[in-house]
């Protein structure tokens, strides 16, 4: 039952939700319903790769509006330091 409700909910979100695009690359990462409540933003039904919330740079200075967006989580590319110990 719970799974069935979840499935219906997810189908609904796919229809009425917003595209979640990478703020830097513009690539489509998934769809989700974005709701705000008591100063927080809730991302409902997102199923794509992990997202990093970012402040999106503005094309001109605006005091009345800021844009928050998302970027796909980065893939780690750290060097090996184990042998340096």
């Amino acid at each position: 039952m719970k799974k069935c409700v979840r499935k219906i909910g997810m189908c609904l979100i796919r229809v009425i939700g917003s595209d979640i695009r990478d703020a830097a690359e513009g690539s489509l990462l998934g769809r989700a319903l974005l709701l705000s409540w008591r100063g927080r933003v809730y991302l409902i039904g997102y199923e794509g790769p992990p997202l990093r919330p970012v402040c999106v740079p503005q094309s001109e200075i605006k005091y009345w509006r800021i844009t928050l967006g998302f970027q796909k989580a980065s893939v780690p590319d750290y060097g090996r330091v184990a042998s340096e110990q």
Binding site: P50, R52, A73, S74, P76
Partner: peptide, 20 residues
């Protein structure tokens, strides 16, 4: 030149990843 290869590898400490 790595020591571990894995699938769906991401850095997740500043992300929406639920487990993290």
């Amino acid at each position: 030149g790595c020591d571990v290869l894995g699938h769906r590898l991401f850095r997740v400490d500043d992300t929406t990843q639920p487990h993290c």
